[in-house]
Amino acid sequence: MIIHLVNHRGKYSLKCWVVLLLFSAPLLFAVKVGLTTYLDIFATRDWELYWNKVLYWPLRLFVLLIMLWILAGTMGRPGEVLGLKSSAFKWKPYFLMLLMMVPLIAAASTQPDFLNTYPKLKQVIPLPEAAQPGWLYKLFFELGYGSDFISIEVFFRGFLVIGFSRWLGKDAILPMACFYCSIHFGKPLGECISSYFGGLLLGIVSYHSRNIYGGLVVHLGIAWLMELGGYIGNSFKG
């Protein structure tokens, strides 16, 4: 497909560039996953553990954004390539899509493998003794966790779909969905399988709307609803 595309354009350098970009994508994601961001600057051990858990995702988002911004700059205007520019974005239909997911998440919240994984908030429980009020420190964690979904949307729907679509058109959506599904391998089976179709759906929407905000609303909403589902489900389990 790529060779056909390049022959059509008639430029060898473009072929090299597209192939290079293709392989840079998993490399960028690997750097994000494999990055060591442990900060040893906190007064006590429990605060150190807490803040490192909270800052784990935002630091990765920051590094990934810098790398993507530089790379996207070679492909065009970074804001447009990454789907960050939006005019007249309508958020209501995405909230409706999110609402449709509520029964599914409620059903998943009764499953043992789901309750073993969620809520992620378990990672910082018990909170450090001086963390008062507790809800605020739980909120910090959830905001940090939420920032991971910004990086996922920018990378998968922005860079891989909107960015690559200038060469590959809608054919950029399917490989992105495969890649996206593969990053869910450590998650419950139902979530992994649904991520393939979810990835396709979000890819199609971002491809047409040329921005990632709709996907971000749905994805972030689902993630926080799953946190809530896991929290309530585990409360009932005792």
């Binding site: 497909m1 790529i2 998993p26 994601f29 690997a30 054919d171 490989p175 495969c178 890649f179 593969s182």
Partner: peptide, 15 residues
């Protein structure tokens, strides 16, 4: 790097 690269590039080249 290898794992997602294999998944991603194979999915691409299958197109």
């Amino acid at each position: 790097f290898t794992a997602p690269a294999i998944v991603y590039s194979l999915a691409f080249f299958r197109l």
